[in-house]
C-alpha cells in the first residue's frame, strides 16, 4: 500500500472512530445505572467491562478468576437477564451495574453500551473487556497480577495486548456435562483444539483475523470463511478517544491492533479460555436461534445452531487437555513475549 493510500485510509478510519463514538453516545440513554460504585475506582485501578445476559452459571467463577488476577473494579451492563444474574451482580462489592432492555445486536453486540462506560470511567486505566464466557490467561498469570503485566506493558511502550479465544469443550456430548456455578468451567470443559488456527492480516484495520479451532472443525467445514473470529484485543490502556470496532476483535486507532510482531519475534499475547460450551449451550442455542442476536448475518448461522441443539460431541482423539499457561505457551497458542 502506498503512503498516500495509507494516509487516506487513516483519515477515513479517524472519521469511522468518531462515528462509533457518536453512535455510542446516542445509545447512552439505553442503559440505566442500577448500582454505582465507581467512586471506588482509584487512579491506576485495573477495570473490567462486560455485557451479560443470563450468565448465572458462569458469573461466580468468572469473578473469582478475574479478581484473583487483580481486576479492581467490574463495570457490567446487564442485558435483561431473568435468571437472577442482575441481583447477584448488584450484590458484589466491586461491581457497578447498568441495565438495558434494548437489542444486543443493534448495540454492536454490547460494544456501544460499553463504549459509553469506557469513555467515562476507563480513560487512563488499563481496561479488560470481556464476555462472561471468557477467562483471560497470560504468561505467569498464576504468580503475577494484571498490575504486574500492565506495568510491564507500559514499560515496554505497549498500550494493548492481544489474545486468542480458545474454545473449550467436554469429553462427551455437550449436554451431558454437569456444572455448578462456583466450579471452574475448565474442569467441566477441559479439552481444546491445539493446532488448527488460520490467520490473515486485515489490511484496513491492520489487525490479525484468526479463525479455526473446534467450531471451524465441527461446524464450518463447508464454509470456513463463516467460522467465528477468534482474535481479540481485550486489554487496552484506554483513552477516551478510543473505540472498539466489532466486539473486541479490533479497535481504533489502528495502532492498538499492532499486538503482534512482524519481524519474526513474538510479542506478548494471551488466551481467552472460552467457556461457551457449558451444558446450557443447548438451551441457549435454541434461544439464540430465534433471538438472532449474535451474528451480523443471522440467517447464515441457523445450521450452526441446529448442530448445537443436536447435542454434538466435539471431542476427538487429537483433542488436548488443558494444563495451564505453560502448556499453552509451549503449544504456541500464546507467548510471554520477552517477559521472563
Amino acid at each position: 500500500m502506498g503512503t498516500g493510500d495509507d494516509l487516506w485510509t487513516a483519515y477515513k478510519l479517524r472519521w469511522r472512530r468518531r462515528r462509533l463514538l457518536a453512535r455510542s453516545l446516542r445509545k447512552r440513554r439505553q442503559i440505566t445505572c442500577r448500582v454505582d460504585r465507581t467512586d471506588l475506582i482509584a487512579p491506576g485501578a485495573i477495570l473490567a467491562f462486560a455485557t451479560v445476559r443470563n450468565e448465572g452459571l458462569r458469573l461466580p467463577h468468572f469473578f473469582d478468576h478475574h479478581r484473583t488476577l487483580g481486576v479492581d473494579h467490574f463495570l457490567v451492563v446487564d442485558n435483561a437477564s431473568d435468571d437472577g444474574s442482575a441481583d447477584w451482580l448488584a450484590a458484589q462489592p466491586d461491581v457497578s451495574l447498568w441495565s438495558t432492555p434494548d437489542s444486543y445486536k443493534r448495540s454492536r453486540f454490547g460494544i456501544d453500551w460499553l463504549t459509553v462506560l469506557m469513555r467515562r470511567y476507563g480513560h487512563g486505566h488499563w481496561c479488560l473487556t470481556l464476555d462472561a464466557d471468557e477467562l483471560f490467561v497470560y504468561a505467569h498469570h498464576t504468580t503475577r497480577t494484571l498490575k504486574a503485566l500492565t506495568d510491564w506493558l507500559s514499560w515496554q511502550g505497549r498500550d494493548s495486548m492481544g489474545a486468542l479465544m480458545l474454545d473449550l469443550y467436554p469429553r462427551g456430548a455437550l449436554g451431558e456435562a454437569k456444572h455448578h456455578p462456583h466450579q471452574d468451567p475448565v474442569d467441566t470443559l477441559p479439552y481444546f483444539d491445539a493446532g488448527n488456527y488460520v490467520i490473515t492480516r486485515q489490511a484496513k484495520l491492520q489487525n490479525l483475523w484468526i479463525q479455526g479451532g473446534v467450531r471451524a472443525r465441527c461446524f464450518f467445514a463447508p464454509e470456513p470463511r463463516r467460522a467465528p473470529t477468534l482474535s481479540k484485543v481485550p486489554l487496552i490502556r484506554w483513552h477516551r478517544s478510543y473505540a472498539y470496532v466489532t466486539s473486541t476483535h479490533s479497535a481504533l486507532p489502528r495502532r492498538l491492533n499492532h499486538v503482534y510482531d512482524t519481524n519474526g519475534g513474538e510479542a506478548p499475547s494471551g488466551v481467552l479460555l472460552h467457556t461457551k460450551f457449558l451444558p446450557n449451550i443447548i438451551s441457549k442455542s435454541s434461544e439464540e436461534k430465534t433471538r438472532r442476536q449474535h451474528f451480523e448475518n443471522s440467517d447464515l448461522y441457523q445450521g450452526y445452531y441446529d448442530a448445537l441443539i443436536g447435542d454434538p460431541v466435539l471431542w476427538c482423539e487429537q483433542s488436548t487437555r488443558y494444563q495451564g499457561w505453560q502448556q499453552l505457551e509451549g503449544l504456541g497458542l500464546m507467548s510471554r513475549g520477552g517477559w521472563a
Binding site: L164, I199, Y260, D261, G264, G265, A267, S335
Partner: peptide, 14 residues
C-alpha cells in the same frame, strides 16, 4: 523468544 521467536509459528503475537 521476543527477538527471533519460534520459527514457523504463527499466532496472535507472531
Amino acid at each position: 523468544r521476543r527477538g527471533d521467536g519460534r520459527q514457523g509459528l504463527y499466532n496472535q503475537g507472531r
